[in-house]
């Protein structure tokens, strides 16, 4: 342990650092497991907030899930929502403070199971918010149970023989569905397993916040993520498993890039 600590101390020496930590990210040690995607996405959000200079105008909504404590790490005002209700909480905040930046940060259980209704209707209303969706195909926080996005055959605590379609139905590609909604402005699916992917995800998050500033509709960024603890794989194996199994089911790229639909397309004639 102390050997590891010494190595980390060595790595984080100022002269070894290639870039500085954003001051919007505070110094608390994150509770995430090694190899978990949550920490990387937190950093990207903090960097975007810093670069856009919107720290004083941004309110985050943390989910129930491993990221419930996101509020400990990013130095902005936060509200912690009940499980799945972050999009409703964000709606409440944004509607009474339309000039603030409001974003939700949610896992797959939070956003695509218990909170499906809140997710769909917030996007369908075209709420001018950013939604960050961490899809790790599992319930990390509660000990690795099946998520709506769990793959067919994937072993979890509640699918010990692998997800069985007859019993559990299919992995939910909620992002594809949300891209169909006229309220969505920008819908994209990204990942953070290597520096190139991290850079792309950061660009997507930045774009999502910019769309919010333009009030063009909901900006939705899915990040296909790893849960090394839930998947019972090492961080390196997790990345490999994700690339081999998750990417074919959850292909990366932009699903929608326009703005909220024109109301006239939906208007009655008479």
């Amino acid at each position: 342990m102390s050997e590891v600590a010494d190595r980390i101390k060595e790595i984080i020496k100022p002269e070894n650092l290639v870039y500085a930590k954003s001051p919007v990210l505070n110094d608390d040690i994150m509770h995430y497991c090694p190899g978990c995607s949550h920490g990387v996405v937190h950093r990207l959000i903090a960097e975007v907030i810093e670069e856009m200079g919107i720290q004083e105008q941004t309110i985050g909504i943390s989910p129930v899930g491993c990221a419930v404590f996101a509020y400990n790490y990013i130095d902005i005002d936060w509200q912690e929502a009940a499980h799945g209700r972050a999009p409703a909480v964000a709606t409440g905040i944004k509607r009474v403070m339309p000039d603030k930046y409001v974003f939700t940060y949610q896992g797959d259980g939070d956003l695509a199971a218990i909170g499906t209704a809140e997710t769909f209707h917030a996007v369908n209303r075209g709420e001018n918010i950013v939604m960050i969706f961490i899809n790790n195909a599992i319930y990390g926080m509660t000990g690795g149970q099946m998520a709506p996005t769990t793959l067919v055959g994937q072993v979890t605590a509640t699918t010990p023989n692998g997800r069985d379609v007859d019993l559990n139905g299919y992995p939910l590609r909620i992002t594809e569905l949300l891209a169909q909604l006229p309220g969505a402005a920008f819908v994209t699916r990204q990942s953070v397993q290597n520096p190139a992917a991290v850079r792309k995800t950061k660009k997507a998050i930045r774009k999502a916040f910019e769309i919010q500033a333009m009030k063009k509709g909901t900006a939705f960024v899915e990040v296909v993520s790893t849960c090394s603890s839930g998947w019972k794989l090492s961080p390196v194996e997790s990345n490999k498993w994700m690339e081999e199994n998750m990417f074919p089911q959850y292909p990366l790229g932009d699903l929608k890039d326009s703005s909220r639909a024109d109301a006239d397309l939906y208007r009655i004639k008479g």
């Binding site: 209700r85 964000a90 409440g92 509607r95 009474v96 403070m97 809140e118 769909f120 209707h121």
Partner: peptide
């Protein structure tokens, strides 16, 4: 003043939560 028809009472009360957390009378 904002008046919004929510998709359910669950959503309504959590919208109230968010707006009340913003110091507003909701």
């Amino acid at each position: 003043m904002v008046v919004l028809q929510a998709e359910s009472e669950i959503a309504s009360i959590h919208m109230v939560y968010g707006a009340a957390g913003s110091g507003k009378r909701v």
